[in-house]
């Protein structure tokens, strides 16, 4: 990570815990999380906002952290896959992924879960079409998507 230029102090909460780190304000939020805060659960896939592997929530809104400046985390609530489960219990969505085969190589999985969890929070009864539309910014090369759709449908049923 950049150790030169005008650094700034970013204060935010990540998965409920306060964080404070110095970095360049234009470092991407993804680089901030991974290389400054040392939180590697969020993955890099493309660095162009195309694949969704780096999806996080910012005050509850899903964004691709590779195209968000670290400066925009200032004072915000950041959510990653690490905040989805309790220490010893997977969330309903994570359990559904495990049962339905929603994860294979696992590299797109953190982004899938973050994006999918946001959809579940909307509380509507999910349909395959709704899932395919909402999740279309998250690329997966292993599953062919069907088992992720099934995972979300199952989690949606569990939660109702």
């Amino acid at each position: 990570m950049s150790e030169e230029g005008e650094l700034t102090t970013i204060r935010c909460t990540i998965d409920g815990r306060p964080h404070e780190h110095r970095c360049h304000p234009l470092a991407s939020a993804l680089d901030f999380l991974r290389y400054v805060a040392g939180l590697t659960a969020t993955k890099e896939g493309c660095k162009e906002g195309e694949c969704g592997a780096c999806a996080i929530t910012l005050d509850g809104v899903v964004v691709n952290s590779c195209v968000v400046p670290a400066a925009h985390l200032q004072g915000r609530r950041v959510g990653t896959v690490e905040g989805l489960s309790r220490p010893d219990e997977l969330s309903a969505l994570q359990k559904a992924f495990l049962e339905c085969g929603g994860a294979q190589c696992g590299i797109c999985t953190p982004g899938m879960l973050v994006t999918g969890a946001r959809l579940l929070e909307e509380g509507e009864r999910l349909t395959e079409a709704r899932i395919r539309e909402h999740m279309a910014g998250n690329l997966c090369r292993c599953t062919g998507y069907g088992k992720i759709v099934e995972s979300l449908l199952r989690a949606s049923e569990e939660e109702r």
Binding site: R34, G38, T40, A41, T42, K43, E44, T80, V81, E82, L84, S85, L90, Q94, F97, L98, E99, G101, A103, Q104, G106, I107, T109, P110, L113
Partner: peptide, 23 residues
């Protein structure tokens, strides 16, 4: 049977270490 993926939990919680994640 569809036994759950052996390394599934590590991948679903973000704990799995890919090369760029190694400390």
């Amino acid at each position: 049977t569809s036994a759950p993926r052996a390394e599934g939990e590590a991948k679903l919680t973000g704990r799995a270490r890919y090369v760029d994640d190694l400390p």
